[in-house]
């Protein structure tokens, strides 16, 4: 089956030349991935990350932006390997979301 990432030659519209400055959250997942892949850790290879991105399926692949796909894949591989658990992740996401909401409450 042709993966959602395998785009060479497919019909597409004109190239959108607009660019955005990379945000902190984008550089952070980039940095996390670099550390997890380094010689000291070897917890994820570039091909494991790509495999995770390809496995998102076409709908998610097309909908998510570049570093959202990276985030989904690196997190997924860390779950597979037991480096983190789904329970830890769910609790931590909720905790950060609360912390983030609090930023708007005391203004």
């Amino acid at each position: 089956m042709r993966g959602p990432h395998d785009l060479g030659g497919l019909p597409a519209g004109s190239v959108d030349l607009s660019e955005h400055e990379h945000g902190f959250w984008e550089k952070r997942i980039d940095g996390i991935r670099l550390l997890l892949a380094d010689k000291q850790r070897r917890l994820i290879s570039v091909d494991e990350m790509r495999r995770g991105i390809e496995a998102l399926g076409k709908e998610a692949y097309d909908k998510l932006n570049y570093y959202e796909r990276w985030t989904a894949s690196v997190t997924g591989v860390m779950l597979e390997k037991g480096v983190i658990t789904a329970d830890e992740l769910g609790r931590k996401i909720a905790e950060i979301e609360e912390r983030d909401k609090a930023r708007f409450e005391d203004d």
Binding site: I32, T71, I84
Partner: peptide, 21 residues
């Protein structure tokens, strides 16, 4: 507010730091 994947990336980073990875 942070979007879902920003939250996920942030949570991943904090967990990896807490675990000493």
């Amino acid at each position: 507010p942070m979007g879902y994947y920003q939250l996920m990336g942030s949570a991943l980073g904090e967990l990896l730091i807490e675990k000493g990875v």
